[in-house]
Design a protein around this nucleic acid. Structure first.
Length: 198
DNA sequence: ACGGAGATCTTCT
DNA sequence: GAAGATCTCCGTT
């Protein structure tokens, strides 16, 4: 299988978010593959993006957003949930794509154990659920996802046609989703896929 | 099906 | 000191 190379991530954030749909996120746990097809993503891009951690400049936490494209940005929200992003665009530009949902493909026994007692449809239906299912946490922050050394990478997968893809406002914007900026359609998902959140 | 609240803690103002 | 790129549980309809 072909691991997506660094060049893939050196493109406009929205383009990367769209192109990641159908690709396979892979995690190696004790030599066993745990994998899922990416079915939902969100773009966070630039200093001007009011909803992005990159807004307001560099801080110790958001530094990976400026770092090398193709590296992971993993952070904790609400004191208990890990969220996985992949840095994109050229270095020194703050941008990342949040992986919001997967369709389980391989290592189902491991995912089930990590997500018990929930049914399969809920294992990876949401950004914090998928990190729990695939055992992704702060130890993966800043790893290079363009090779296998970090135990986490993305492989080429299904080609998703444009007419199978929908876009809409990002999730978690609160009441501000009604303001112009926060209603920008920077969430991407595979239409009709049962594993998409919401 | 839908709504509200609690869990839990890091980050930055 | 408050808010946060969420999830789960428990209540009511």
């Amino acid at each position: 299988m072909t691991i997506l190379p660094r060049e893939f991530y050196i493109q406009y954030t929205t383009h990367v978010a769209r192109e990641l749909l159908g690709m396979t996120l892979v995690r190696s746990i004790d030599g066993q593959r745990v994998a899922g097809m990416i079915v939902e993503t969100e773009a966070y891009t630039g200093r001007d993006d009011l909803a992005s951690h990159g807004h307001g400049g560099k801080t110790p936490r958001n530094l990976p957003m400026w770092g090398p494209p193709g590296h992971a940005y993993v952070y904790l929200v609400y004191g208990m949930h890990w969220l996985l992003n992949i840095a994109c665009e050229p270095e020194d530009y703050p941008a990342a794509v949040l992986i919001r949902a997967l369709e389980p493909l391989e290592g189902l026994d491991i995912m089930q154990a990590n997500r018990a007692p929930h049914p399969q449809l809920q294992w990876t239906k949401g950004p914090a659920r998928l990190t729990k299912a695939m055992q992704v946490d702060g130890s993966h922050n800043r790893i290079d996802m363009t090779n296998m050394t970090g135990g986490l990478w993305v492989e080429a997968g299904q080609r998703i046609m444009d007419n199978e893809i929908h876009t809409g406002p990002r999730i978690g914007m609160g009441r501000r989703v009604h303001e112009p900026w926060f209603s920008m359609p920077w969430r991407w998902w595979i239409a009709g896929n049962r594993h998409v959140s919401r």
